[in-house]
Design a protein around this nucleic acid. Structure first.
Lengths: 111, 111
DNA sequence: GTTTCATATGAAAACATATTCATATGTGTT
DNA sequence: AACACATATGAATATGTTTTCATATGAAAC
């Protein structure tokens, strides 16, 4: 009877899971303005370097960011083609449906 | 020096976190075709009823689905306006960037 | 080739969310 | 009111992902 798809690795799940993290979102929002190296991101967000590196590595796996070597630095840039329209959809969605100030607390996360 | 945004509840994170789950994705894909009650979804996916209920409750918090009572059933329907374009963006993204068959395994999730 | 700066990596711990299972609630029927 | 059906809820556990911290790697300068 078990006809479950059990499709843990479908592309949608992989993509959303990768983005389901506030640090990664902060990095994405930061890279929206301009390309940055790891140190710049780390300083700007006040977040430890290795944490940023881990987050970037994961974003890179899904081609959400890409990287260029420049001397000893690595410059990360955002793949805007996919992400920006996606953020816009969420902006629109939130505007339409999340009218109360408590919405952010209530949506999805128990925290 | 800690100038971190620490914005765990920003709308993007809340939204993506809610979607970062294969059952919820399966439910969304199923509701894409037509509205269904909990039992139908549960049967179709071969997934226990309470699991489906929990997933639907969480999707509802973000207005990704909505619900209508019909006798003792509850009919869930997908808010297509936001989700469908979002899935399309991911389709496009995967087509452009995830050319190898191993990509799904590699992207984002360690599993 | 040693030092310094920049970033990546591994592994354990911390954390968050999903799953499970027992049970409660709600709706209609008899 | 008792029952059956449909769905929701709570709480403990399981699972998966992030965080942390120590350390490794790589690139340039000396």
């Amino acid at each position: 009877m078990k006809q479950s798809s059990n499709n843990k690795n479908n592309k949608y799940n992989v993509f959303f899971t990768n983005l389901a993290n506030s640090l990664k979102i902060d990095i994405i929002l930061s890279l929206r303005q301009k390309d940055k190296n790891v140190g710049e991101i780390s300083n700007e967000l006040g977040v430890e370097q290795s944490k940023v590196s881990h987050a970037l590595a994961s974003l890179k796996l899904c081609n959400i960011v890409s990287v260029k070597q420049n001397g000893k630095e690595r410059i990360y840039s955002l793949n805007k083609k996919t992400i920006l329209p996606m953020l816009n959809l969420i902006d629109k969605h939130a505007k339409d449906y999340c009218k109360c100030k408590c919405c952010a607390e209530k949506c999805g996360s128990k925290k």
